[in-house]
Simulated assay, not measured.
Amino acid sequence: MDKSKFLRVFTDCYLVEGDDGCVIYDLTRLKLISITKITYDVLKEIDGKSIDFIISKFGNNIIEIIDYFLTEEICFLTDHPENFPKISEDIYFENECYSAILEIGSSSQYDYVKVINELNQLGCQMLLLSIKSDSNITSEEISKIFNATTNSFLKCIDVVIPSSFENVFSMDFFNQNIRVNSVTYLGSEEFKTETNENYVSIKRIKDEELNWTEKIVPTNFTFTLKSFMESKKYNTALNRKICIDEFGFIKNYINHQEHFGNLSTTDVSISQVFRSSEFQKKWDIHNDLIEKCKSCKFRYCCFSNSDLHYSDEKWYKLNSCENFEPVKVSAN
């Protein structure tokens, strides 16, 4: 090993410390590497230093650790460490609204098509349409909803609907509505998942209703370079999201108690509510500001729609997680 070279941690590999251990976020290969606190401290110390300096401080045994991380492509050797600055943490959003949820039930009286049109004005990119089993919506109304999405900014539509409407979603429907990403049929006789000819995920579940209470599990961890940077400044689950429950209440998420107006009884502007500081308040409450979450090594990839409450000048999540340890690769 050339002792004159310098060691650098790849700029897309972020070292994150928590009370329960440390993790390397590999944002290019999208994996987590669990490491000890000692390894975390050593990597922070040797990043940007020459091999000669590192050996002089830690001894020849450090070479084994360096070789491991060179092999795992967490670190690399260079003659000019200054040529590899940190990635900018500035974040830019192309559209005002990222995602929306529309819930339709027997009590729903709001204008679905009007809501779709208002969401389009906000540049909404993802939509979850949830139709409850007691809904009296007709096939014609469902068609009108999807017709309103035809020339929208929407990139992805997920549908949760009673199995009795399965005849509506024919191949012709999917050919005409290419934004549909998945359809989940409620109250099916069996649990089954498949992909149709249009690459739409078709799920059949026995549950009669969608459960909005989340269970935070490692399989739900989500991170890319952009979402990682977003998570450092925003609540990634609630940021730029708007939800309309079956009663027409506008919320940050469907199962939250707080609402910001009702579409069924008043002439409320979705855009006006969405852009208000009151509605956007929880967008800025990211995991670094929330008790328990702020000391978790997975805080930058944990996606949770949990409501938040403020007590004694501290933020808390109403739905907290159990302790878990999803180790992909470990290094001592």
Rank of each mutant, 00 (worst) to 15 (best):
I270P: 08
N239C: 03
A100K: 00
F58Y: 09
Q125R: 13
S130D: 14
Y234N: 08
N211R: 10
E166I: 08
E17C: 13
E246L: 11
I63F: 01
N120D: 12
L238W: 11
L289C: 06
S306D: 00
T78M: 05
T184M: 11
L154R: 04
Y25R: 01
K281A: 14
L77Q: 07
N262K: 04
C97S: 04
Q280W: 08
E208M: 04
E189A: 13
K5V: 00
S164A: 14
F223A: 10
Q280G: 01
G48H: 08
V115H: 01
K3F: 13
Y253A: 14
K203M: 09
S277M: 06
Y110W: 03
I62A: 08
C97I: 09
K215N: 12
I65M: 08
V329W: 10
I24G: 00
E89Q: 13
Q121S: 13
I202Y: 08
V23S: 01
S4W: 02
R299Y: 12
F53C: 00
L102G: 04
K192R: 04
W315S: 07
N323T: 13
S4V: 14
Q176H: 05
K155P: 09
E325Q: 13
S108D: 02
C97L: 00
K57A: 08
K232A: 03
Y40T: 13
I290F: 09
T36E: 07
Y199A: 01
F174P: 07
V268N: 07
P162Q: 12
E230A: 11
T28R: 01
T150H: 00
R8P: 00
D307E: 14
F303S: 03
D288V: 05
I142P: 07
W315F: 02
L70H: 06
D172K: 08
Y310H: 15
L43H: 05
E194R: 02
T138P: 01
D79Q: 09
A100V: 04
F93T: 13
W212H: 06
I178S: 02
T11M: 02
L32W: 11
I270E: 08
F298K: 11
F279K: 04
S164H: 11
V273Q: 12
Y14R: 14
G261D: 12
S276D: 06
D19Y: 14
T219R: 06
T71F: 02
P85Q: 04
N167P: 03
T28W: 05
I74P: 01
A100W: 06
E194V: 09
E322H: 10
